[in-house]
Amino acid sequence: PDSPLARWTKSLRSLLADQDGAHLFRTFLERERCEDALDFWFACNGFRQMDLQDAKTRRVARAIYKRYVEGRGVVAEHLRAATRACIRESVKKQRIELRMFDQAQTEIEGGLEESAYRAFLTSDIYLDYV
């Protein structure tokens, strides 16, 4: 009952907490060309663990913004305009906070949960593994 597979079907979060689960889900997303959504989700988690005193943190915030928020990728497409604007302001004004991507992460997580996660659980990638 507490096998990894049982956990994967419990929730998106429990799937992502498992190394094999996260890896398999990313393979599925690659096929759908939306693996950026997952990378962004992990980047937000990693960013929250950083140290504001570290000069690296500011550069990572800018890198996340440039890679996922500012362009026309799958993440930017799924974020609310207000959320993107808010992050843009923070980066431009160098108001870096560890929770500055939280809202965006919530929006992306919601999108993953509603579509990709459900599709994953009925995909051949998942079924073959099972």
Binding site: Q19, A43, V60, R62, A63
Partner: peptide
Amino acid sequence: IDSEDDLLQECISSAMPKKK
């Protein structure tokens, strides 16, 4: 000095689940 891409990759990897 690390490129921003490297820093981003490092940030993503740090949050990935580790083998139990």
